[in-house]
């Protein structure tokens, strides 16, 4: 898996203070996407074990306390990303007590395949649906367009 950007301290993508990972690879290619550079599966850098360890460490940091981890992209539920995302989330749930997981995906919750559903079982808040330019509204919390839904799972 590739990732485009990792923010060890983030306040824009989900509630509270978070660690946020933008993975690479997205098939939805929504018009007006603010992150076009992340569409390609090989955009950015290779997601290494080292980075995975850093995420775990950042989440457990006692100085800058995090509420949890956010996965966005690209699409963390892109078939090519699912395995590694699942592995990461399992580690977070195992090693980072009390941290929640937020995720943004272009897929719809109701239409996920078995593997994707395995990932979602570990997610606390999912924002699903494509970005619809005509329904865009910058005043929305956590959503780009009003068709998207925040699922508190």
């Amino acid at each position: 898996m590739h990732y485009s950007k990792y923010y060890p301290v983030d306040v824009v993508n989900g509630e509270g203070t978070r660690c946020t990972l933008f993975v690479s690879g997205c098939v939805h290619q929504c018009k007006g996407c603010y992150n076009q550079s992340t569409w390609s599966l090989t955009a950015g850098q290779l997601f290494t074990e080292q980075l995975e360890q850093q995420i775990i460490d950042d989440l457990n940091d006692q100085r800058i306390v995090k509420q949890g981890l956010t996965l966005s992209g690209g699409d963390p539920l892109h078939p090519a990303n699912v395995d590694q995302v699942l592995a990461l989330l399992k580690r977070v749930k195992r090693e980072c007590e009390g941290k929640d997981i937020w995720m943004w995906t272009g897929y719809l919750l109701a239409e996920l395949n078995v593997k994707q559903k395995q990932v979602i079982e570990l997610v606390d808040v999912l924002i699903d649906g494509k970005f619809e330019k005509d329904l865009a509204d910058p005043s929305l919390a956590w959503r780009g367009s009003s068709n998207q839904v925040i699922h508190y799972l």
């Binding site: 306040v11 824009v12 509630e15 509270g16 203070t17 978070r18 956590w142």
Partner: peptide, 18 residues
């Protein structure tokens, strides 16, 4: 210097508390 924090008061509070 912060981005818009109107939807994320918790994060703002984290910094105040820090």
């Amino acid at each position: 210097e912060y981005p818009n924090m109107q939807h994320n008061l918790k994060a703002l509070e984290n910094v105040w508390d820090y």
